[in-house]
Amino acid sequence: MSNLMKVKSLALKQTQYPTRLEKRIRSEAAEHVQAHIDRNIARKLTPAEHREKKERKLFDEPNTLEAIVSVYKINDLSHPQTCFIIDVNAQENRLCGCAVIYDGIGVVVVEDGNKSIKRYGKLMLELIDWASAVKEEDEDESDDKPANKCVLVRLGCVAKLSVNKFTFH
């Protein structure tokens, strides 16, 4: 405030009425702040525009004409909690494909854009604790089974998507 008083008083050469000068400076500063707030409000996105921008950021990839396919093999996919996590995250990432469980062994095939596949791959390979994701009765019966883990079998490109949603079999 004192800096503005000095600048204004030098520019106007009116130091006879410091109170009037201070009042004028305060009103100009308030106008400046209000103009700043008004500009921000005018630029603010509506909730629908904000949702659309977030979806574009997460899922749109305008430069890719092909889909990425990844195949994961899990030694024991019999625990219902991990099946639920796999299913829900595939749907949230808008992935297409399927998960097949046969005799406890699981294969998950997902396909879509690069961003979604990267997020899903991080979930499958790093975030899920596969060693603790086995049924308790299986742990008591046999100790000779290999440790439960998820392995990325294949990652590649295809020209177009072969299915349009994620399913569990």
Rank of each mutant, 00 (worst) to 15 (best):
L45P: 13
E49Y: 10
E52N: 12
E55P: 09
K57V: 05
F59E: 02
F59I: 00
D60E: 12
P62G: 01
N63G: 13
N63S: 10
T64D: 15
L65Q: 11
L65C: 09
E66W: 08
L77W: 01
Q81Y: 15
Q81E: 15
T82D: 07
F84C: 01
R94S: 08
L95Y: 01
G97Q: 03
V100P: 08
Y102R: 13
Y102P: 11
D103C: 11
D103Y: 13
G104K: 04
G104C: 05
G104P: 12
I105E: 14
I105Y: 04
V107D: 03
V108K: 01
E111S: 06
D112W: 09
G113V: 01
N114W: 07
K115N: 02
K115G: 03
I117D: 00
I117M: 02
Y120L: 04
M124G: 03
M124Q: 04
E126H: 14
E126S: 12
D129Q: 09
W130A: 03
S132L: 06
S132N: 08
K135G: 08
K135C: 13
D138Q: 06
D140G: 07
D140F: 10
S142I: 02
K145R: 15
P146F: 03
P146V: 02
A147S: 11
K149W: 13
K149R: 15
C150L: 05
C150V: 09
V151S: 10
L152D: 03
L152T: 02
R154A: 06
R154Q: 10
R154E: 14
L155W: 07
G156Y: 14
L161P: 02
N164T: 00
